[in-house]
Amino acid sequence: MAASILQLQQVSKNYTLRGVTIPVLRDISFEIETGATAAIVGPSGSGKTTLLGLCAGLDQCSDGTVLLNEIALNGLSEDELAQVRNAHVGFIFQNFQLLPTLTALENVMVPMELHGVRDASGMAIELLEKVGLASRAAHYPSQLSGGEQQRVSLARAFANKPKILFADEPTGNLDAETGQLVEELLFQLNREAGTTLVLVTHDLDLAAKTQRIIHIKGGRIH
């Protein structure tokens, strides 16, 4: 059996608003094996995105343990978390989250440049070719369509050869046809790179394409 790349043990997350503690996630435990694909599904406000943020090291849990590639994320400083994200994690967001002041090529280069990779430009061009956007390398995000922006975002997510990829509603902002294209690209690149994929979605058809579905409701796994 393959080793786990992500382990959550009794994870809880609370927010405090005007002195009142609001529990968002309660007692969450699961494991994801290396190379596996999984989907977190649930209704709006169920805590899906919060869970994704905890798994990806974007936020800290209130209780419990999160182990990413055998690194305990609890108690790490923001800089240490940034290092973990840069070395092991790739992201795809519903709103694409490209840097508006950088061209498509520069956006893909960012994770590699932060990591000190040489020839980041050559590798970024290759990635853009894989998503079919090499000809749009010099364009700024505002000059690209939504589908094109998400494909640039896909290329960026794979730039540092991450061990695990987190995708938050990757097709949520796209029409059906473009969404389909992005889905196919996502799974294809994931297969080729052998990356673990965890996605958050409302779309049960998309979730069905993963090996495992984690249902979440009211902050708990069902």
Partner: peptide, 14 residues
């Protein structure tokens, strides 16, 4: 822009 850079792994120093 900077939060995105942080998300992609940029350290405070960077």
């Amino acid at each position: 822009e900077n939060v995105l850079l942080r998300t992609l792994g940029a350290s405070r120093r960077q």
